[in-house]
Design a protein around this nucleic acid. Structure first.
Lengths: 195, 195
DNA sequence: CTTTAATTTGAACGGGCGTTCTAATTTTAT
DNA sequence: ATAAAATTAGAACGCCCGTTCAAATTAAAG
């Protein structure tokens, strides 16, 4: 019973799309609901018909973005066999798919004392996702004897912060031109953990 | 002639101090001039007596912060002799002195299309300072035969982004607890560039 | 065709923003 | 003591914010 009788879903998607772009370009605070309204062509009131408020809209977008990033990696991962290759593959995946500009808005939101605790919690949960993906690769490498035995948690943070730091460059440089940099970071990191 | 006859300098400094703290805690956009007024105890009007506007106040603080960071390093640098030691020293200097929270506000300001081009330019010039300091260490290491010959520019970016990425952790973790992490990053990096 | 429910608009609200301005006060110079 | 200059406060301005709401429009159901 009751298939969706109306289709305002396309409107909702269009709003989300434009909001994503604006949040990515200008950050969370500096993107106003009016901006999103103008960019999407739908009235402000309509935005509130679809989303409870600006904060929840942003969190939703961040969640979808991160989830998509993760799923995409899960699909790509089988292309690689050994853990070292996976780490190179991951670096490329991060370079081309990690939405640094949007997720920066999350820090903005999280650092605002007036943001709802629930939103902040949800954003922190997102930050954990990529770390989990890195850790899985390192664990595999150790278990299969490819990497030394070592402090996995620390290694995870080290490679995670490095890739995260490199991602900041995507604001100012062409993604393609950054490939060698990302690969060299992985190479250097691997040199110190490979057997 | 004409020594400064009045001394509102202390008021100015107090305003800058409070503004620094607020910008660090809440970011640029989310810190209002009223916030600064309340925190410092001086009226909004008085703030505009000392500073042209909020944007220039922030840029001034960012400049002072970075300049101080650099001078402090210049004073500390002679403690170390070989380039490797300098790199470890630099990592500690970054951990304990690089004002990540404030400088994050700079990204916010720079990504706002309505910010004055002059301010943006000034902020970009600031970002160059630490990179110069890293590069100097690498160059010394190469010249003195301690490091391999290699792509200095790339190495500079690699160590710069790594330390920058690690600095993000200062938001959520005790500085002391991060020391081993910073040191290990340097150790790993050195392993691949030392002769 | 009428009724009902879903969708969309646009005006309105209260509040806070960055900034300006005038006037009061304090300090210095004469 | 008086005039001039520097310092400070605080009200006021216009603007835009996030959000709400009532009304208009559109689509589906009977």
């Amino acid at each position: 019973m009751s298939k969706r009788r109306y289709n305002s879903e396309s409107a909702k998607l269009e709003i989300m799309e434009k909001a994503f772009l604006l949040f990515s370009q200008k950050g969370y605070t500096q993107t106003s609901v009016s901006d999103i309204s103008k960019a999407s062509g739908y009235s402000k009131g309509h935005i509130y018909y679809h989303f409870e408020n600006k904060e929840k809209l942003f969190v939703l977008l961040a969640q979808r973005t991160m989830k998509e990033w993760y799923l995409k990696w899960m699909n790509k991962e089988p292309e690689f066999t050994c853990a070292s290759d996976k780490l190179y593959g991951m670096a490329m995946h991060v370079l081309y798919n990690y939405q640094t500009p949007l997720l920066k808005g999350g820090q903005e939101l999280a650092s605002n004392p007036e943001s709802s605790p629930e939103s902040i919690k949800q954003l922190y949960e997102l930050a954990v996702i990529p770390m989990g993906a890195y850790r899985a690769i390192l664990v595999q490498g150790i278990e299969e004897g490819e990497f030394k035995k070592g402090n996995v948690e620390e290694w995870t943070v080290l490679i995670g912060t490095w890739l995260g730091g490199l991602c900041q460059l995507t604001n100012t440089q062409e993604l393609h031109s950054l490939e060698p940099l990302f690969k060299n970071a992985v190479r250097i990191f691997l040199e110190s953990i490979q057997k």
